[in-house]
Design a binder for these strands. Structure first.
Lengths: 194, 194, 194, 194
DNA sequence: TATGAATGAGTCTTCATTCAT
DNA sequence: AATGAATGAAGACTCATTCAT
């Protein structure tokens, strides 16, 4: 479904993605119909299929785009930082920050993870993110700053904390982001013991 | 839809729940039809509606039953243990153990969390579990064994680690459960620093 | 889509086939919607899919059933007749007779032959019919009653005459069947020369 | 939709007809969309509607053009030949030859005959062709060369043979055209008896 | 002339649910 | 308790056609 798009076309496509993201997040993927999406935009049904081959493709594109954007944010945040522990911290803060600004995507990603159609896409995204984290962890272990435990499991543990605190702060919605981020980082680095 | 059931009736109901759990886990809730569930059991469609008012109710019952069972397991594991840190550890190990034995439920619960229809049920379940954890955390903070940070956030952090390591070990499927549990506990108690 | 049908179910299925045959013949396969078929029967749309997996399957079943019926008629007509030329004649007359009584099927079969989805089914049917004819022709050639020419081509020639005269007499509709059959037989046996 | 076309315009129109003929023949009229036709040519959708008022019109034009061309071929073949039997033979051979060179049209014509929208156009074409044949047959009957049977039915019989042998040789595709034509002529003139 | 974009009625199909038996 | 049958609203997707540029 690669199509040469005029600027106007590109704009439409973006509108559809935005609209789809919002509705999928609010009501869920299955309960949202293509008709809902185009109606929310006030355009005909055909428009949707001019830009996307299927409803499925819309979600896939959403997943790809969000992953791409999140990773960009993380990389910018980490920059040239050399200290591996600090890199991990910056990555955590970048993730929390990104989701705070793109609330829709949390629900979408979480749903996608439960659906056999989309799980593979997400699995790949996660793999890449985990691999990044593992690299930093290994550096930290070599440095002696991080305890010598299975880096893969540690990476998942960190991601779990980030995911749940993200979810919690998005849903409760009234906690200062920095506070959550601080605790998230502290917990990951020091655990409950502090 | 409370109905007095004969022993045979109770058995049927259990079969339906088991069957539904399996299919919902494998294919997802929406993509699984009531027809699929009864077909997998080789019975007519009427049977389903004899025991459940709707497809929705089946999932709700599944959610309730699994939550009930998981909590029972946790309580048995914790028993009369007095040390709050140890209570947390036992709770974590109980959760990991339970999910290892009820793999279907992880996917179901995760999906339910993303659907506005079921999210409330899950939210309540989670609240209760978090409240339990918070209680132990507060005890630990009073004891001075646990750093004095926001207990609610800490509780969520722990749950996040447990959830993601559960998911990881279920999906990867080839790690010894004890090893995962050990790391999970260690990470929660000491963080990366060890 | 094999399903155990109650007598009532079998009846419904037959009604759907009859109805479909009529509408496909009148308006064509593509221009006839499943909605048209069920509306003509005054039943809900779901009924159709209870008995047939798809619109396509309905046509396929129609094709199979008609072929089966036509062949039965031909075999009954030919019976134990020993003379191969006479067998051909009886076959021709049976075909013309059958189509006169099942006018809907001519149009359906002719359409199906032009559609890549159904052509294979029809090709097989035709093959079988041609093979029958070829057998009689070869017998006739051995007897010296039929000129020694390529029996496959001869068989097709005969089928062509039968098909077109069938069509003509169905459409014109006012010619006595026997007269058409007589000429058909005479033409096939003696050609224009007589 | 008569439009004065520049040479370039005429060329485009021809390309569209050729393309349409090919696709209609391969996939069928209904399953082929206007989008398919223009995509195969690599042009925009507007082009199609510049040259044809509708998809329907394209098929109608195709039918007209092919009929015109076939008739021209037949007339050239028959030329000034005086012998009516020979005229029939030449007509048969011309038809077989033309279809061998315009394979696409056989499927198209056969489909059109089954669709109530196009059947009338085809009926007229057929009428004209049959009338031609009838004229030759009557001449032959007067000459005593042809048996005195209903000329209309005889004409249809001949057309049936030609149609089916055409189809057969196009589909089987591996028989020498002359051989088929010889048998076709022989069968029509002498029947099975030879 | 030509294009990308848009329309929206219409198509096939699914499915939760109900009902007669 | 159970079954086969029926319902019909709703969903994903198609496509002939039109239009602004």
């Amino acid at each position: 479904m690669r199509r040469k798009l005029t600027p106007r076309g590109r704009e439409r496509r973006d509108q559809l993605m935005e609209c789809g993201a919002r509705l999928f997040a609010e009501r869920g993927y299955h309960p949202t119909s293509v008709a809902d999406v185009v109606a929310a935009l006030g355009v005909g049904k055909g428009v949707f299929y001019w830009y996307f081959a299927s409803k499925e493709e819309l979600l896939t594109e959403l997943l790809k785009a969000s992953n791409h954007d999140l990773r960009k944010r993380q990389q910018q945040a980490i920059g040239e930082e050399a200290d591996p522990v600090r890199r991990i911290e910056l990555g955590i803060r970048a993730s929390l920050g990104w989701f705070a600004e793109h609330r829709e995507y949390f629900a979408i990603i979480q749903f996608a993870a439960t659906d056999e159609t989309f799980a593979p896409v997400l699995a790949r995204n996660r793999e890449i993110a985990i691999a990044d984290t593992i690299r930093h962890l290994k550096d930290g272990i070599v440095d002696g700053r991080i305890a010598d435990r299975d880096p893969a499991l540690l990476a998942h543990a960190i991601h779990g904390v980030v995911a749940e605190l993200t979810r919690h702060s998005l849903v409760e919605g009234n906690l200062p982001l920095d506070e959550v981020a601080d605790l998230c980082v502290a917990f990951c680095l020091e655990g409950l013991a502090g």
